[in-house]
Protein backbone atom coordinates (compact mmCIF):
# COMPACT_ATOMS: atom_id res chain seq x y z
CA UNK A 1 0.00 0.00 0.00
CA UNK A 2 2.71 2.42 1.04
CA UNK A 3 4.77 1.40 -1.99
CA UNK A 4 1.93 2.11 -4.41
CA UNK A 5 1.11 5.43 -2.75
CA UNK A 6 4.73 6.52 -2.85
CA UNK A 7 5.06 5.42 -6.46
CA UNK A 8 2.00 7.48 -7.36
CA UNK A 9 3.40 10.49 -5.56
CA UNK A 10 6.72 10.08 -7.36
CA UNK A 11 4.93 9.91 -10.72
CA UNK A 12 3.07 13.12 -9.85
CA UNK A 13 6.38 14.72 -8.86
CA UNK A 14 7.91 13.74 -12.19
CA UNK A 15 4.89 15.22 -13.96
CA UNK A 16 5.27 18.46 -11.98
CA UNK A 17 8.97 18.63 -12.80
CA UNK A 18 8.24 18.10 -16.49
CA UNK A 19 5.64 20.89 -16.42
CA UNK A 20 8.18 23.13 -14.69
CA UNK A 21 10.70 22.47 -17.44
CA UNK A 22 8.36 22.65 -20.40
CA UNK A 23 6.13 25.60 -19.54
CA UNK A 24 6.87 28.95 -21.13
CA UNK A 25 5.65 31.01 -18.20
CA UNK A 26 8.17 31.50 -15.40
CA UNK A 27 5.48 31.84 -12.72
CA UNK A 28 3.88 28.52 -13.75
CA UNK A 29 7.31 26.90 -13.58
CA UNK A 30 7.81 28.21 -10.03
CA UNK A 31 4.38 26.98 -8.97
CA UNK A 32 5.11 23.54 -10.47
CA UNK A 33 8.38 23.33 -8.57
CA UNK A 34 6.44 24.18 -5.43
CA UNK A 35 3.96 21.38 -6.17
CA UNK A 36 6.88 18.96 -6.51
CA UNK A 37 8.13 20.05 -3.09
CA UNK A 38 4.73 19.64 -1.42
CA UNK A 39 4.30 16.17 -2.96
CA UNK A 40 7.75 15.29 -1.65
CA UNK A 41 6.72 16.29 1.86
CA UNK A 42 3.57 14.12 1.57
CA UNK A 43 5.78 11.25 0.40
CA UNK A 44 8.00 11.70 3.46
CA UNK A 45 4.87 11.57 5.62
CA UNK A 46 3.79 8.26 4.05
CA UNK A 47 7.29 6.84 4.46
CA UNK A 48 7.14 7.50 8.20
CA UNK A 49 9.46 10.50 8.44
CA UNK A 50 7.39 13.33 9.96
CA UNK A 51 10.50 15.29 10.98
CA UNK A 52 11.70 15.57 7.41
CA UNK A 53 8.14 16.21 6.20
CA UNK A 54 7.83 19.24 8.52
CA UNK A 55 11.23 20.59 7.49
CA UNK A 56 10.52 20.01 3.81
CA UNK A 57 7.15 21.75 3.88
CA UNK A 58 8.33 24.85 5.78
CA UNK A 59 11.45 25.25 3.64
CA UNK A 60 9.32 24.74 0.55
CA UNK A 61 6.95 27.52 1.66
CA UNK A 62 9.88 29.86 2.24
CA UNK A 63 11.50 29.07 -1.11
CA UNK A 64 8.19 29.41 -2.93
CA UNK A 65 7.53 32.83 -1.38
CA UNK A 66 11.01 34.06 -2.32
CA UNK A 67 10.81 32.62 -5.85
CA UNK A 68 7.32 33.95 -6.55
CA UNK A 69 8.17 37.42 -5.26
CA UNK A 70 11.38 37.36 -7.30
CA UNK A 71 9.51 36.17 -10.38
CA UNK A 72 6.66 38.64 -10.45
CA UNK A 73 8.88 41.65 -9.87
CA UNK A 74 10.86 40.78 -12.99
CA UNK A 75 9.39 41.90 -16.27
CA UNK A 76 10.61 38.95 -18.35
CA UNK A 77 8.38 36.17 -17.08
CA UNK A 78 7.96 34.19 -20.28
CA UNK A 79 10.64 32.36 -22.19
CA UNK A 80 10.89 32.53 -25.96
CA UNK A 81 13.03 30.72 -28.50
CA UNK A 82 13.57 27.08 -29.28
CA UNK A 83 16.02 24.81 -27.55
CA UNK A 84 19.31 23.98 -29.17
CA UNK A 85 19.85 20.66 -30.89
CA UNK A 86 23.19 19.95 -29.20
CA UNK A 87 21.74 20.56 -25.76
CA UNK A 88 18.80 18.27 -26.52
CA UNK A 89 21.13 15.51 -27.75
CA UNK A 90 23.37 15.88 -24.70
CA UNK A 91 20.35 15.68 -22.39
CA UNK A 92 19.07 12.55 -24.13
CA UNK A 93 22.51 10.89 -23.94
CA UNK A 94 22.77 11.75 -20.25
CA UNK A 95 19.26 10.41 -19.65
CA UNK A 96 20.21 7.15 -21.38
CA UNK A 97 23.39 6.75 -19.31
CA UNK A 98 21.59 7.47 -16.02
CA UNK A 99 18.76 5.06 -16.90
CA UNK A 100 21.19 2.26 -17.69
CA UNK A 101 23.14 2.86 -14.47
CA UNK A 102 19.97 2.91 -12.36
CA UNK A 103 18.67 -0.30 -13.93
CA UNK A 104 22.03 -2.01 -13.40
CA UNK A 105 22.31 -0.93 -9.75
CA UNK A 106 18.65 -1.61 -8.90
CA UNK A 107 19.48 -5.29 -8.39
CA UNK A 108 21.76 -4.37 -5.47
CA UNK A 109 19.23 -2.18 -3.65
CA UNK A 110 18.03 -3.46 -0.26
CA UNK A 111 14.41 -4.45 0.23
CA UNK A 112 11.96 -1.54 0.38
CA UNK A 113 11.74 -0.32 3.97
CA UNK A 114 14.75 -2.34 5.12
CA UNK A 115 17.39 -0.45 7.08
CA UNK A 116 20.30 0.27 4.76
CA UNK A 117 22.90 0.59 7.50
CA UNK A 118 21.75 -2.52 9.35
CA UNK A 119 23.40 -5.15 7.14
CA UNK A 120 26.46 -5.54 9.36
CA UNK A 121 26.36 -7.01 12.84
CA UNK A 122 26.76 -4.33 15.48
CA UNK A 123 25.75 -1.54 13.15
CA UNK A 124 25.25 1.73 15.00
CA UNK A 125 21.79 2.38 13.57
CA UNK A 126 20.32 -0.45 15.64
CA UNK A 127 21.90 1.00 18.76
CA UNK A 128 20.47 4.43 17.96
CA UNK A 129 16.95 3.02 17.76
CA UNK A 130 17.11 0.58 20.66
CA UNK A 131 19.11 2.58 23.21
CA UNK A 132 18.40 6.11 22.02
CA UNK A 133 15.84 6.86 24.70
CA UNK A 134 17.91 5.30 27.47
CA UNK A 135 21.11 7.07 26.51
CA UNK A 136 19.89 10.52 25.53
CA UNK A 137 16.44 10.86 27.10
CA UNK A 138 15.04 12.13 23.80
CA UNK A 139 11.90 10.25 22.80
CA UNK A 140 12.24 11.49 19.22
CA UNK A 141 15.08 9.37 17.92
CA UNK A 142 15.75 11.76 15.02
CA UNK A 143 16.60 14.49 17.53
CA UNK A 144 18.60 11.98 19.56
CA UNK A 145 20.74 11.25 16.51
CA UNK A 146 20.96 14.89 15.42
CA UNK A 147 21.91 16.45 18.72
CA UNK A 148 23.57 13.63 20.63
CA UNK A 149 25.00 10.76 18.58
CA UNK A 150 25.83 12.84 15.52
CA UNK A 151 26.06 16.30 17.05
CA UNK A 152 29.26 17.01 15.12
CA UNK A 153 27.23 16.90 11.92
CA UNK A 154 24.76 19.40 13.33
CA UNK A 155 27.58 21.69 14.43
CA UNK A 156 29.05 21.54 10.95
CA UNK A 157 25.67 22.24 9.42
CA UNK A 158 25.13 25.21 11.74
CA UNK A 159 28.60 26.50 10.80
CA UNK A 160 27.82 26.18 7.10
CA UNK A 161 24.55 28.05 7.56
CA UNK A 162 26.26 30.76 9.63
CA UNK A 163 29.03 31.27 7.07
CA UNK A 164 26.63 31.32 4.13
CA UNK A 165 24.41 33.90 5.84
CA UNK A 166 27.51 35.94 6.67
CA UNK A 167 28.64 35.82 3.05
CA UNK A 168 25.19 36.64 1.72
CA UNK A 169 24.84 39.61 4.07
CA UNK A 170 28.28 40.90 3.12
CA UNK A 171 27.69 40.60 -0.60
CA UNK A 172 24.21 42.10 -0.45
CA UNK A 173 25.28 44.91 1.86
CA UNK A 174 27.96 46.18 -0.51
CA UNK A 175 25.30 46.85 -3.07
CA UNK A 176 23.00 48.46 -0.56
CA UNK A 177 25.61 50.73 0.93
CA UNK A 178 25.92 52.71 -2.28
CA UNK A 179 22.35 53.87 -1.84
CA UNK A 180 21.89 54.38 1.87
CA UNK A 181 18.22 55.35 1.59
CA UNK A 182 17.33 51.86 0.37
CA UNK A 183 18.98 50.15 3.30
CA UNK A 184 15.76 50.56 5.27
Amino acid sequence: MIVELTAGLILLMIAGALVAIETRNLLSAVVSVGAVGYLLSVAFLFLGAPDIAITQIVVEILCLVILIRATISRDLTSISGDRELIGLLASLALLLVVTVVVILTAAYFPEFGAAVMDRVAGAPSRTYLLDGLEKTGAANSVTAVLLDFRAYDTLGEATVLFCSILGALTVLRRRARKKPEEDA
Binding site: I66, A151, I165, R175, A176, E182, A184
Partner: peptide
Protein backbone atom coordinates in the same frame (compact mmCIF):
# COMPACT_ATOMS: atom_id res chain seq x y z
CA UNK B 1 20.74 23.07 21.71
CA UNK B 2 17.43 23.00 19.84
CA UNK B 3 16.61 26.49 21.11
CA UNK B 4 20.02 27.83 20.05
CA UNK B 5 19.73 26.35 16.56
CA UNK B 6 16.16 27.60 16.26
CA UNK B 7 17.07 31.18 17.19
CA UNK B 8 19.98 31.07 14.76
CA UNK B 9 17.88 29.79 11.88
CA UNK B 10 15.07 32.25 12.68
CA UNK B 11 17.25 35.34 12.60
CA UNK B 12 19.43 34.29 9.67
CA UNK B 13 16.53 33.40 7.38
CA UNK B 14 14.72 36.61 8.34
CA UNK B 15 17.89 38.60 7.61
CA UNK B 16 18.39 37.00 4.21
CA UNK B 17 14.77 37.64 3.24
CA UNK B 18 14.86 41.28 4.31
CA UNK B 19 18.25 41.87 2.68
CA UNK B 20 16.91 40.44 -0.57
CA UNK B 21 13.91 42.75 -0.38
CA UNK B 22 16.24 45.69 0.25
CA UNK B 23 17.93 44.73 -3.02
CA UNK B 24 14.64 45.26 -4.90
CA UNK B 25 14.47 41.63 -5.87
CA UNK B 26 11.42 41.01 -3.73
Amino acid sequence: CNLAIGLKVLSSLFLVFVMLSALHII
